[in-house]
């Protein structure tokens, strides 16, 4: 409770200083003011604009997220079990991984146009690598001793996959998913900023083009809200998918 009050105090102090400083120390057209931002945000909320644009962005991010995660998980498990194949493909995978995925946007525009598909695929590409690499690591980290113990129990490859490999990879998959949420938003937003007439990214760049600073901040606020919602959703799904983790602190692994 004290923690929450403390956080609100910090927030209030920042907003108060911002409001005060604007027009006194800094030009208002550069930083706007919290009150103006709230007014703009409220207006967008009232005319439904924010829901429309946020809905588009959420659709792109979620669809890309699911597509990328599904493919990443499948390939991660597959290559995790097929050591030779993984070794064969390793340089190609690392080569693709090293491309900043955003740099693929122009190519995707040529291939898929400037509609939703382009943003979904861009997002999926980004999410794919994070989930794939985490799943692969998870599958590789399954103890061979444990697999042998199961084999002695009469397990075949399908049993090993279903009872050990997939469940033990899940922790890693969710680590990958959590890391992916902000990146999924990057895919969707950058895609919209490059070429679109709807979505939060469009709202952001449109406000910026008109020097509507309050609008830019309002759009950023909407983006933050959407990201937090998605993070929370992944957290809730993770909790249900991994009931054994309830008390345990999750370790975050970055790559």
């Amino acid at each position: 409770m004290k923690m929450i009050l403390g956080r609100f105090a910090i927030l209030a102090a920042i907003l108060g200083f911002w409001e005060f400083a604007s027009g006194r120390f800094m030009e208002p057209y550069l930083i706007s003011t919290p009150s103006k931002i709230m007014t703009t945000f409220w207006a967008w909320l009232m005319d439904g604009r924010i829901f429309f644009h946020a809905g588009i962005t959420a659709l792109e991010a979620v669809a890309g997220f699911i597509l990328g995660a599904a493919v990443g998980m499948t390939l991660g498990i597959l290559l995790g079990r097929a050591e030779k194949l993984a070794e064969l493909l390793n340089p190609f995978i690392m080569g693709f991984y090293s491309i900043p995925k955003i740099a693929l946007a122009p190519l995707f525009i040529i291939w898929f146009g400037i509609g939703l598909e382009m943003k979904i695929l861009l997002t999926a590409t980004i999410v794919f690598f994070l989930v794939f690499l985490n799943t692969y690591t998870g599958v590789r980290s399954v103890s061979p001793e444990l697999v042998n113990i199961l084999r002695l129990m009469g397990a075949n490859e399908r049993h090993v996959l279903r009872k050990v490999v997939v469940p033990s990879a899940i922790v890693w998959v969710f680590t990958g998913l959590r890391l992916s949420v902000p990146y999924a938003m990057i895919g969707a937003i950058v895609g919209e900023m490059i070429a679109a007439n709807r979505g939060l990214g469009y709202l952001l760049s449109h406000a910026s083009a008109q020097f509507n600073t309050a609008g830019v901040f309002a759009a950023l606020f909407a983006i933050i809200t959407l990201s937090v919602l998605m993070n929370t959703a992944v957290g809730i799904v993770a909790k249900y998918a991994m009931p054994w983790e309830k008390a345990q602190k999750k370790r975050e692994v970055s790559i």
């Binding site: 103890s143 001793e145 113990i149 002695l152 129990m153 050990v164 469940p167 033990s168 899940i170 054994w244």
Partner: peptide, 16 residues
């Protein structure tokens, strides 16, 4: 399959 194996690590499946 006539034998069972137990090692130093218990290898329990922590999700079960």
């Amino acid at each position: 399959r006539k034998v069972g194996y137990m090692t130093q690590s218990d290898h329990l499946l922590h999700w079960r």
